[in-house]
Design a protein around this nucleic acid. Structure first.
Lengths: 200, 200, 200, 200
DNA sequence: TATGAATGAGGTTTCATTCAT
DNA sequence: CATGAATGAAACCTCATTCAT
């Protein structure tokens, strides 16, 4: 890891725990092991660190979204209802590469804290926590509907319930305390439990 | 409003928007219209303002909970499924006196921000956003079940869905941007919409 | 002297010797004998000290100008040429209360330094060092002309010479090194010497 | 222009506008288009840039003075009073090669600023703005006196007036704002105007 | 109740400079 | 010649807090 990467890493951990303003340049440098003046060789100012993190997150998200888009053409084998929650897209992309990913998880926490007085962050927060996931779910379930698993109308109904579950559980298990394996498992278990309750 | 109340009011608005650490005594006093030294007549120190707010919030919540408890004995008239969402408890206590209440709303925002590095606040946040509401819903729907609206098992199923909806929508509409009447209405509308989708 | 006045006094001495930017808040506070944070109780920021000095100087100058205006009506007794330079206005106001006055002298030095990158200061510098004195001289000598000491045309000629002498000598003796009594005397002596050379 | 010359050029422009201390190595390098570390290949430290500029100025001045000295032997054709101001020495050397010369002009501004806390610069400032010019004028007019244009005593009288005019006008037009052609013309015009007023 | 004046600690940022490459 | 990376010192300024009035 370069010094610049180390700074971003440490800053993200601290920002996501205490909030941007409550973290001092001194704090970051102390943890990274450099002098304050060195940080200013790598970043224009404190805001620049935050901006760089946001830029990196946007890139990450866009990478994920395009991966999902590429999968659009790939036909899923006929799925039963109970397979839905384990759809490759949902498990691999929504969980492994997004909700459970340490970088994304911390970025979401940071956005949760900072959204209240930063319009840009609020927009990104809404997009990545509400709009994007909803669209992804809709996409997945509509394609499953095409395969005859359920009607189009049923698909929309399912998406609404699924989205509500996922969102609630995300806030309950993933954006709360430390992101431990225990929490991840509890989250995954509840998701699968609740899926069974989704009636068609 | 006494000076002390004014201070708490201003502090809550600022804390919930920028976070506790990012708000200075100067900021608060400037808005209240007093000198910094005056604030120390009313509060021991900065932390004391936060503690007072938390204490006030706990009292408020306990008041609500005991009101709900008192209603336990009161028999509801037999309700149909579509009446559930408009149950007096849910509408009056969960919405009007809690989620839509300006003081509670700002306190929840503040807790959202501060939960990440303050154990006491995290516990309160979990209790008031996840545990308490879940229990209240369960209580209400179990009582409805007693009246024969649906089976006990169905009640639990309904509560899980209802709780997921309410939580997701709370984060989506009420803990995001300013708490406008428009947002409140959008929230209420979506709640009632989704209720129709809850199948028994 | 109040703390605020002490700060302004020390700041003026330092600014006029080293230039505004080269003087640090630490330097000023060290000399005044207060902590840096205390300075910020009295002044918004460093620029505010400079602005206050300029405002004080403007007031001082305006005071002088209105005193001179008030003298307009007072008839001078018929003066001979050699009395001109010792006109009450010139001696009392131009020298004692302006060029020799420690506050004004330091302010002019400060303006000399800062005029090069500060439009407001440049304007004030031009006004107080070139325009105002020229007008004052013209006023005095025109009034002397009225008393028959010399013709109006001669008056203008004299003013041009007198102004050139005064200005040159001001830069040579008063805006150079420390303002000692020796320098003041050398200045006054040269003024009176040169006056003799002014031909009518 | 070599990099070293470019650095000196940029530094002079900045020093003469803002003062030595207020200009940072960063500022200079940014304008030159090199990294800070590169500057230290060309100059030992910041002070070294200032010293080099002063050295260059001294050389320039000495060159001018020796040119003037060389002209000492050359007999001027008999001049009338009105030709004095257009004496080759005064016009060519005092104006074109000194007061109007961009390098000299900026150096004088720099010295004006720095004289107040740097003894070496103050000495150079006094010499080049007051002593040298006075001696040059005296030299020129004494030689004119030898040719019978006026008496020796008259010469001294003229020099005193001429010197006062030139000095005052220099400060008024050439050491104030940007050195534009307009200012130079205004300066030259006033010099010639005032010359007419010098009485013998 | 409220304020004026002060302060130690710490905030972000800029400074001139060094040194290995 | 030029640069990337680093640094100690110091710049300006804000912080929460105290205390006499």
């Amino acid at each position: 890891m370069t010094t610049k990467e180390k700074i971003m890493d440490v800053a993200l951990h601290m920002f996501s725990e205490r909030g941007y303003e409550a973290v001092s340049i001194r704090d970051i440098c102390g943890e990274v092991g450099i002098k304050e003046s060195t940080l200013y060789y790598h970043f224009k100012n404190k805001k620049d660190i935050l901006d760089s993190l946001i830029e990196k997150f946007k890139d990450h998200i866009n990478g994920l979204l395009s991966h999902i888009d590429e999968m659009d053409g790939v036909p899923h084998k006929k799925l039963k209802q109970r397979d839905v929650a384990s759809s490759k897209v949902l498990d691999t992309y929504m969980m492994d590469s997004y909700l459970f990913d340490p970088f994304c998880n911390l970025m979401i926490r940071l956005m949760m804290i900072e959204q209240f007085h930063n319009e840009e962050i609020r927009a990104l927060y809404e997009k990545t926590l509400f709009t994007d996931p909803y669209n992804i779910y809709m996409n997945v379930f509509k394609r499953l509907a095409l395969q005859g698993a359920f009607s189009d109308e049923q698909a929309e109904q399912i998406v609404r319930q699924y989205h509500a579950y996922m969102t609630m559980l995300t806030f309950k298990y993933l954006l709360n305390g430390e992101l431990t394996d225990k929490r991840k498992k509890a989250y995954a278990k509840e998701v699968h439990n609740l899926m069974r309750g989704i009636s068609l």
